[in-house]
Amino acid sequence: MTKGTIFIDQEKCKGCSLCTAVCPQEVIVMQDDRLNLKGYHPASLNEANAHCTGCGVCAVICPDVCITVYREPQMKSHATTAC
């Protein structure tokens, strides 16, 4: 499986949670115990559960464009898993 990671600009996040609903790996969580400067609970990548594939659908749905997506180069043996 392709491996990737995302960076969420938490000060831009408005906590709408659309990214958590679309993430196929369910690795994005809302930080209910933290507020950003605007007073929203921002989204964050659950890094302990390192299953992010860098597919980027969270960045496609994010209305505040606060997600940057990175991906590791694919291993040759898994060359067909890209989305």
Binding site: A59, P63, D64, V69
Partner: peptide
């Protein structure tokens, strides 16, 4: 070091926060 950038904020979009409500598709 091998990570490649797949998606980032478009250059034509300003970096400021928008006044839209959370979840508003104007941002999209």
């Amino acid at each position: 070091e091998t990570s490649t950038l797949v998606y980032q904020r478009p250059h034509s979009l300003a970096t400021c926060n928008t006044n839209y409500c959370p979840g508003c598709t104007h941002g999209i």
